[in-house]
């Protein structure tokens, strides 16, 4: 699954990229395998998304979010 498949409030762990050439800016923001991301909400028109990563909020488009492979954390 990717970030797009998450529901607002869901937390998940990044497992990889659905592309060979991920956008450099997203990497630099720390969106790397092993990182926890939270889908906070989507914008009023459904795109872009507000995600929380490494303690800050980041706005990314659906098209970019669909490149980030994630695995949902099992809530204990």
């Amino acid at each position: 699954m990717t970030i797009v498949d998450l529901k607002p409030g869901d937390r998940a762990i990044v497992t990889g990229w659905a592309t060979d050439d991920p956008p450099g800016r997203l990497l630099e923001f720390g969106l790397l395998p092993g990182t926890t991301v939270e889908l906070v909400r989507s914008a009023p028109l459904g795109d872009p998304f507000d995600i929380k990563v490494r303690g800050f909020h980041l706005s990314i488009r659906k098209s970019e979010a669909s490149l980030v492979l994630v695995e949902k954390r099992v809530t204990s």
Partner: peptide, 11 residues
């Protein structure tokens, strides 16, 4: 190419 858009939402 389509554009990428990643922007910080500062507190």
């Amino acid at each position: 190419q389509s554009s990428f858009f990643a922007m910080e939402l500062p507190p």
